[in-house]
Computed example of a mutant assay.
Amino acid sequence: MSGKASESEESGSKNAVAVEDLKPSELGTKNYWEDNFKDELNDFKNHGIIGDVWFGEDIMYKVVNYLSDCHLVTEESKIVDLGCGNGVMILELAREGFKNLTGLDYSENAIELSKTLVTTNEHDATFKMANLLEEPDKLDLGKYDVCLDKGTFDAISLCPDLPQSEARAKYFTNVVNLMTEQSIFILTSCNWTTPELISMSADYLKVQETIPTPQFMFGGKCGNVVSIVVFNKK
């Protein structure tokens, strides 16, 4: 999944920005991810290969370290990974000592792979099939202290089956329904800049802070390859 060139976060993060829809892609389809995680599941079972760490290990550890240092989060906090994929994030959180972990994914093969990875490494977690583009009144997944998304919103933004404005509305409504008034939601994206994430979620969420990520210079402007924003329920 290729990221967009990032705007300056310093100049745009507090103001609404125009958001252009992304071109739909097979990366936004369930069939693509079922096939992808089927291959990863076979690789893990046959060769012990875990598979891709979405956005790289450095970005994953930034989120894990943030949670470890956050005074609002304890080892007993209920944490859900939205679009858990191969389960690497759940495994790293378990290794860090977090005990109340749930992974959600709409791919059956992803759920099986995640379960296999976590149990093979002698940790515990709960995994549930769920589609965050489902009608919000049809999902009842409980409440969590921490909601994490590392790449799922990016994939949803490439979905060819719904207008992107409708997909975003369903996604953010479903995320908010997982949160309490004290919950935090950490959204990690390579397709959207921080100002764009803030603008798209403004009707549902408010910004608590951003997590610094590696920067690059292009055309005299400074930007980020990956954006990580910490939200609270509005």
Rank of each mutant, 00 (worst) to 15 (best):
N86T: 04
L113E: 05
G85N: 02
S107G: 14
K115C: 03
V146M: 09
D69F: 10
M60G: 06
E112V: 08
A94M: 08
T102I: 04
V63W: 01
I59Y: 04
C147N: 09
W54M: 06
G103F: 09
H123D: 06
N121K: 02
C70K: 02
V118N: 03
R95Q: 11
D140I: 12
A125W: 06
A110K: 03
K143N: 00
Y61P: 02
V146D: 08
A125K: 02
E96N: 14
G51T: 04
G85R: 00
E135S: 09
K78D: 15
G85T: 08
K62M: 13
T126D: 13
K62P: 08
N131C: 09
H71L: 07
L132W: 09
R95Y: 11
L148S: 00
S77F: 04
E57M: 01
I111F: 13
E122F: 05
N100V: 09
D145Y: 13
V146I: 15
T74S: 09
K62H: 07
D137Y: 11
A94Q: 06
W54F: 04
L113H: 06
G83F: 11
D124W: 00
R95V: 07
D149R: 05
A94I: 10
V80W: 11
G56D: 07
K128R: 00
R95C: 10
M129W: 14
M60W: 07
D52R: 05
E108N: 13
E92Q: 10
E92W: 02
T116V: 10
K115V: 04
A130H: 11
E135V: 00
N65R: 14
L141G: 03
T119H: 08
V88R: 03
G87N: 05
N109C: 15
V88W: 08
L67N: 01
L67P: 03
W54D: 05
Y66W: 15
D81A: 07
D105M: 13
D124N: 02
I111L: 13
V118Y: 00
E134L: 10
S107M: 12
D140W: 12
T119E: 10
M129A: 13
S114L: 06
F55V: 14
C70M: 09
N131P: 09
E134K: 12
Y144A: 00
E92S: 03
Y144T: 00
E57Y: 08
D52Q: 11
Y106Q: 11
D58W: 06
V118R: 02
E112K: 15
A94L: 05
V63C: 11
D145W: 14
